[in-house]
Write a protein that binds this DNA or RNA. Structure first.
Lengths: 365, 365
DNA sequence: TATTCGTGCTTAAACGTTTAATCAGAGACT
DNA sequence: AGTCTCTGATTAAACGTTTAAGCACGAATA
């Protein structure tokens, strides 16, 4: 492929072929009326000159920049790579670039980040909002990825159903006394997951919920969660609503000499990078990020590029959020080695040296 | 703050004040000759109309888009959030936007990703190259973040010295037989770290290196690494060159009933998100991402915006990579609970229930 | 034969900004 | 009084593309 040489624009091609720049534009875009032979000649000349269209100029003329914004509450969130990768992939398949913006800190930062993206003329944005934020109607199409229980959003994983799947899995194994572990009681996502877990475990299961932020507010950051005591109190399963908390639980229990999964089971959420490689590998629930991203991007593009001319008069109504209804994408249960039947009682068989089964044998629902 | 209304450009302000658009431009940029009073009036009118300059138009005219590209080998890499956050922060402080591009897959993908960014007219790019890739001289300033042993790059953490710090830490604790754990033998970063570790451990330490990719090529992905056997063979410390491998080692050892740090020590690299919260919290080495990002962005901007007019004739020389010399940013040793003196021999005190000391008491070098 | 139509191309304006060149007027100098 | 300079503005071109409008010409139609 010819290297993009800087001084090659449409006029250069036009001059080289003795035609007008407009014809070159029409030839390349296939829009106007150009003879097939000329189209071919233009194409040839373009690649010969290493022509690269100026998206900037096109953006100025058409008002569409071909760029989407991605606003994240905190890039440091371990889930972020999955989101960013999926969005970047979906967007770039659709011919769009992705401009990232971190709204770390307070809500004002989020507004500011959105403003910066608007200045840059993005055609639309994907927003993963800060907790409790309601995205106001800004001047461009917006797709919100959050949780179905947040009002007015567009697409999200079905966190509740994911929790329910996990709950049913644990119930089927025989767990009746389960500790649910969350980070913040104010997270809609986590509350949805916990709601699903309880429903999936069924009415005869005894559940308790531990919020890590509350514990840390008392005992300091990174403090032990006292899970060994909980195990002693009869909890046979620890269902965290994020893999990070699950990992924390797993290592704390292992450290206390409580075998997983022989004595207690541990589960997480999100299938983060470490879930398959720890010992025992984590049973977790995965969001289908690719589908979520595809839906979000597709919805955005639908709003940006009106396909069939909307003949009905109400064409300016959709200037705000992309859709009013919510898309719920199913989650996928991934059973690995950290779950098993609850310990039958009696002296716990500490540290039976059960080697990890290879994760190739993962069972997915 | 007045909401940015779409139909407000420089001409609108000019018309409202009865002056020309050029004067408005000069007034706002402070470049031409405009009377102070008029400048004030223009400013007032601008904010009254909610004027937002079109960065697109400015980009077209000036050839500078105010956007930098960030090319990553794999967004799913757990280190990515740190990089992206630091780069985004540094760039946005300098008034630049950040366009991300994932070069996941082969080297062709990386070239393609760079090409897409060039099309979009980025002013410069930060590249974290794929293994073994040499970034060719593309048409815009480039800052490369990799490792000092990669030729021709710009800025990186001093991985070797970081390894040396960790090596000295382990040596000081008394470890003499250490297993070094890496992922891929072809990674410059990992080799640098391992080299530093060996140097830091000193000549009388016995080191062995395990490459996980090799083990997995034989036994399958996610297979046990057989670390219990290594411990039985007398290794007292397991120094991984990434926190992910360290976590894998830690959980495998714990699972096998080998106490960390009473019996063996485990260390990692990068201070990833889970390092402080697992039990025992991981002793690791942190890259100063903020500084690295600042240096990279500053170098880029120096190349993009020539400050003092370069009076010497050789002004086009720096069209390629930003600098020829390499900036090495020191790493920071973070001592947590996963390291301790080697077990003195005799029957190992399996699973002494030593509670985690709170991480507030972290010791940093 | 005169009108209409379709084809293949050109002309010109537009997007919103920056910037070099120009210009009118006022004050300061010779 | 004539020339020069400084100031504060204007004019116009340019960045590279898209696109509506127009134009010339040959073919099909009335």
């Amino acid at each position: 492929m010819a290297l993009p040489r800087p001084g090659s624009n449409m006029s250069a091609i036009a001059a080289a072929l003795g035609v007008s720049a407009a014809t070159v534009s029409n030839a390349l875009s296939g829009k106007g009326r150009v003879s097939p032979e000329l189209i071919e000649k233009v194409r040839a000349k373009a690649s010969e000159l290493g022509y690269v269209p100026s998206l900037t100029a096109r953006a100025l003329r058409t008002g569409r920049a071909g760029v989407l914004g991605l606003v994240l509450p905190d890039i440091a969130n371990p889930l972020f790579p999955q989101i960013a990768q999926a969005i970047e992939n979906a967007a770039s398949n659709a011919g769009y670039g992705v401009l990232i913006a971190d709204s770390r800190g307070d809500i004002a930062k989020q507004t500011e980040a959105i403003g910066r993206l608007l200045e840059r003329g993005v055609d639309g944005m994907v927003i993963v909002p800060r907790r409790g934020t309601r995205i106001a109607d800004i001047g461009c199409p917006v797709a919100v990825i959050d949780t179905p229980s947040t009002p007015g959003n567009t697409v999200s994983a079905d966190h509740w159903e994911g929790g329910a799947q996990m709950g049913r899995h644990l119930a089927a194994l025989g767990h009746r006394k389960v500790l649910l572990i969350g980070t913040s009681a104010f997270s809609n996502v986590q509350n949805d997951r916990i709601g699903g877990l309880k429903a999936g475990l069924g009415p005869d299961a005894e559940c308790d919920t531990m919020w890590i932020e509350k514990v840390e507010a008392v005992s300091g950051e990174g403090c032990p969660l006292g899970l060994a005591d909980k195990a002693a109190a009869g909890f046979t399963a620890f269902a965290a609503v994020s893999d990070l908390s699950a990992l924390r639980a797993l290592t704390e229990l292992q450290r206390a000499g409580i075998g997983v999964p022989e004595m207690v089971s541990v589960t997480g959420f999100d299938d983060l990078i470490w879930s398959p490689v720890v010992t025992p590998a984590l049973t977790t629930v995965r969001m289908d990020m690719a589908t979520i991203a595809d839906l979000a991007i597709a919805a955005l593009i639908r709003a940006i590029e009106p396909e069939g001319e909307a003949e009905n008069g109400a064409e300016e109504i959709s200037a705000g959020n992309v859709t009013s209804e919510t898309d719920r994408v199913p989650m996928q249960l991934i059973v690995r080695q950290s779950t098993g039947a609850p310990h039958a009682g009696g002296a716990p068989n500490l540290h039976a040296r059960t080697p990890n089964k290879p994760t190739a044998g993962e069972v997915t629902s």
